[in-house]
Design a protein around this nucleic acid. Structure first.
Lengths: 136, 136
DNA sequence: TCATTATCCTAGTAAATAGATAGGGTTTAT
DNA sequence: ATAAACCCTATCTATTTACTAGGATAATGA
């Protein structure tokens, strides 16, 4: 299941991508427009900023803005920042790899092969989808 | 994340598919061979039986066995039985559809479209993969 | 028939995670 | 200065996951 965190995070950056210009948008504005809890959204935007997706400006007239052009933001990166691994099992994850404790031989594991295929196809979609695609 | 339940369930049916014949195999045997907690596996096999994947026989010489030929068991069905929806969000699920409360218009939702693509590609893999494929 | 074997089934529990919420601290524009 | 906004850590509650307990039921065979 996709977490609300990821869902809200994507909605928020789509909202930013749809803005006419790149002037900062306040959390409260996005919260109202997209019906997302203010405090929850605050923490989500913070992680997006800490991971290089968003920039922010403090004080009056401040807010969040996209650091790159929407067409240069691919969803694989966004998914990893918000949701974590794209793979369904750690043992097939490219960026968050972990060995299974219950699996003596990874290559002999039936689950491993299947989940590697699923990861590949999902990853291809996320990599080839940009924020610009989602914002149209 | 794939649940342990699903992972163990797949391992168990792969184990059954690899048997020479279709005589019942005891839970305890699978539990030992695949290093899966006996009681947990018991409940997993029970749900597989209740959903038409496995048959069972009680009493001495009893156990679980596949109801169909491995090449006629597609993993989409197995995944739905064990893991639930294949889609990452209920609003794009074919078999477990639910409307989002926070989404006024589904077709205008950027997350919806992206997740529908992911569901399609995952589903294609699961549908085209049989238990026989995994057992080789 | 009766003891043994093995599944059936309901309920419960501990730990982790999700989804928020609280409440200040810090920075900036005016 | 003062108000506007983000920054940051901590906490809380509900749900889910992973697993456990313990008996009920059914089949086999001596």
């Amino acid at each position: 299941m996709l977490s609300k965190k990821t869902k809200y995070g994507i909605k928020a950056i789509v909202y930013l991508a749809r803005q006419k210009d790149r002037t900062p948008v306040q959390i409260a504005t996005i919260s109202n427009e997209e019906s997302i809890s203010l405090k929850f959204l605050e923490s989500i935007l913070l992680t997006l900023r800490k991971n290089g997706v968003l920039g922010s400006k403090k004080g009056k007239g401040g807010g969040y803005y996209l650091l790159k052009d929407p067409k240069d933001i691919n969803m694989a990166n966004v998914m990893r920042v918000l949701e974590g691994p794209i793979a369904m099992v750690p043992c097939v994850s490219l960026n968050f790899y972990e060995k299974c404790d219950d699996c003596p031989d990874e290559n002999a594991c039936a689950v491993h092969g299947l989940m590697a295929q699923v990861r590949d196809s999902s990853l291809e979609i996320f990599r080839n989808t940009t924020l610009a695609d989602l914002s149209q």
